[in-house]
Simulated scan of single mutants.
Amino acid sequence: MQALVENVKNTIVGVIRGTGEIVNAVTETASSSLATALKGTGSVGKALTESVTDVASGVIQGTAQVGGDLGQATKGAVIGVLKGTKEVGGEALDAVSSTVQRLVSETADVGGDVASVARQAMEGAIEGAASVGVKGVDAVAAAAAGAIAGVGGVGKAATETVARVARGLIQGASDVGGDLGSAARGALVGVLRSTKDLSTQTAATLAATAGSVVKATADVGGDVGATAKAAVEGAIQGAREIGVDAAEAAAAAASGALKAAGEVSTTAVEQVQKAATGVIAGVKVVAKAPFNA
């Protein structure tokens, strides 16, 4: 409802202008606005999805209007949506995914930094999940899938943006002690949910995304093998969801992970080769080419 978008936007504008504080102000605005909207319409299915996306739109539009920090606003929005959803008994993971998807797409629309927003969205998902009793790994995967889907589009530019967003997701998870594997898995699922096909370009995006999460994991000192395997698992899950060849999707992800590992170290290549190929989730995974450091 446009009325909800405008209400949230105007509230955010007033609060930021009045106090300058963003995260807590957005958290409270998002939580109360969502709870109020859903109490009158019910908290399941379409009503929940529409309400959380409207809240997300209002948050980004309002913050952008006053030149506020979109990343901080995003973090507050995700935490607030989780709190508001819990208050009315809604499905938290669906709410997180839909919220982050809209936050990323709105940020792109206003010319903001989508990678930074993805990073803060991940932090918000992890912190918010802990406060409402949702499993952190599930919230991480939901946020990651939503963020990648929020990029939308196909082609080289979209692939590059997805890779940057995926990197932000790993960084955000690392910042607050979240599970990097869940972030990687969700990111790859998000690619396929967004494209709904397995074209040559989608395969390239899967490879680039897997490569991005592996490099980001190496940068934060994480387990590159575990992240690579999780990325392949995400490709398989996403492929099965949309009904395309899981082995082909997995091969693209494994190839991208190995290529990235080759830019890190010989040890990283060995770790990724061992973890991300072979039989995974019932699928024989074969990388399309060898990669060496």
Score class of each variant (00 low, 15 high):
residue 185 R to T: 08
residue 184 A to F: 08
residue 193 R to I: 09
residue 155 G to E: 13
residue 151 V to N: 00
residue 170 I to E: 04
residue 153 G to E: 08
residue 160 E to C: 06
residue 173 A to M: 08
residue 162 V to N: 10
residue 154 V to G: 13
residue 162 V to Y: 10
residue 150 G to Q: 03
residue 144 A to E: 04
residue 164 R to S: 15
residue 167 R to K: 15
residue 165 V to A: 03
residue 146 G to A: 07
residue 150 G to K: 05
residue 186 G to S: 04
residue 150 G to V: 00
residue 150 G to N: 09
residue 171 Q to P: 10
residue 174 S to P: 11
residue 192 L to P: 12
residue 173 A to D: 05
residue 172 G to R: 01
residue 170 I to Y: 09
residue 180 L to T: 02
residue 150 G to Y: 06
residue 154 V to N: 12
residue 166 A to C: 06
residue 174 S to L: 09
residue 170 I to V: 14
residue 176 V to L: 13
residue 168 G to W: 02
residue 166 A to W: 09
residue 161 T to L: 12
residue 143 A to Q: 07
residue 176 V to W: 05
residue 154 V to I: 14
residue 170 I to R: 00
residue 157 A to V: 14
residue 187 A to F: 00
residue 184 A to P: 01
residue 182 S to P: 06
residue 158 A to S: 13
residue 182 S to A: 14
residue 185 R to A: 09
residue 167 R to L: 13
residue 187 A to P: 02
residue 166 A to E: 03
residue 162 V to A: 07
residue 181 G to T: 02
residue 144 A to L: 06
residue 161 T to I: 10
residue 191 V to W: 12
residue 187 A to E: 05
residue 159 T to C: 10
residue 143 A to E: 03
residue 149 A to F: 14
residue 161 T to A: 09
residue 152 G to L: 14
residue 182 S to E: 09
residue 155 G to P: 03
